[in-house]
Simulated assay, not measured.
Amino acid sequence: MAKPDKQSGRQYTEAEVRVILERALRDAQTRDVGHDELVAAAEEIGISRAAIEAASRDIELVRGEEAARAAIVARRRKGFRSHLFSFVVVNAFLFAINALTPGPWWFFWPLLGWGLGLAFHARAALSSDVSPRRLRREIERSAERARREELRRLKEQRRAESMERKQRLERSAEDFGHAVEEGVATVLSRIAQEIRGSVPPGPAPAPAEDAARRQRIAPLDADDAESEALGEEEAERAGRRARGRR
């Protein structure tokens, strides 16, 4: 592939372009580059988007394999350290028993047998070689963990959104209830004002005037009752005299 330079007309081969880009990236200040920026920069020198996509997939695959290999090696070495700790503690305990009890020395037999197994374990744990099958299983396991983590995150996000919607509905219902109560109170107040406006109430009597009026009415009621009783008695006497004359 050759790319002409617009300013000087110089041309570079594909190998030269690769070397120039590698040196420019090495000499320049390193920073993270986004995928869109990478595609735009590649299109400027005549590399298609499909080629960039394929190369990025290969890089992601290599990155995933490296991460899987590192996880496997770390797990192996962790298991070896645990095995080594058990080996030292148990064999020290066996040595103490053999030293404190009479009889021949026998602790080195389990020490030799277990030490042989520990040596094979160390050889496998300290090696960085990982089979392709083991790498594939680790990549699949990592992808499954990532998928579960994403599902858990989405579930928590949905739960949070549901709680937020529920709180908004509760606040809306509470605001609506307050608005209805205020509206009903306003309507009842207006109705009461209209009723008071259509039937104006008379002036309320003063307490002193009301008491004097009651004192004036009380004697009048007593005189009326007495006059009525006298009238009935006179009528009865007149009736008796009329019957005596007959």
Rank of each mutant, 00 (worst) to 15 (best):
R81N: 07
V33A: 10
D58S: 04
A173R: 14
E138D: 00
R241Y: 05
L220A: 03
G103T: 01
L126R: 04
A41V: 02
A229G: 10
R165W: 04
E138Y: 08
P110T: 00
L21T: 10
R145N: 06
A179V: 14
A218S: 09
R243A: 08
L61Y: 07
E164M: 05
P104E: 10
E174Y: 03
S127D: 04
S86H: 02
G103W: 02
G202V: 11
V130K: 00
W109F: 10
R49L: 03
E209T: 15
R148S: 12
E14Y: 09
A143R: 12
G202T: 09
R136N: 04
D32P: 10
T101Q: 10
R159E: 08
A92N: 04
E138V: 15
I139V: 13
L116P: 02
F95H: 02
H35D: 14
E194A: 07
E164W: 12
A50Q: 07
L135N: 01
A173C: 07
G197M: 15
V184L: 10
A74K: 13
G64F: 05
L188C: 04
A119G: 02
P4G: 10
P200V: 08
E138S: 13
A40F: 15
V17S: 11
A125S: 14
L230C: 07
N91A: 15
R69E: 06
R49W: 01
A70M: 05
R137D: 12
E149H: 08
A96H: 04
A124D: 11
D5H: 00
L94H: 02
K166D: 14
R152L: 12
I45S: 12
E233Y: 10
R49C: 11
R243F: 12
G64H: 01
G103K: 09
R196N: 06
R133D: 07
F95A: 09
I59Y: 06
R10N: 15
P200I: 04
A96P: 08
P203G: 05
A42F: 11
A242P: 03
N91Y: 06
T186P: 03
S172A: 14
R77A: 00
R159P: 02
L61H: 05
P207A: 11
I20F: 13
A42G: 04
E22R: 09
A119M: 06
E209L: 06
V19I: 12
S142F: 12
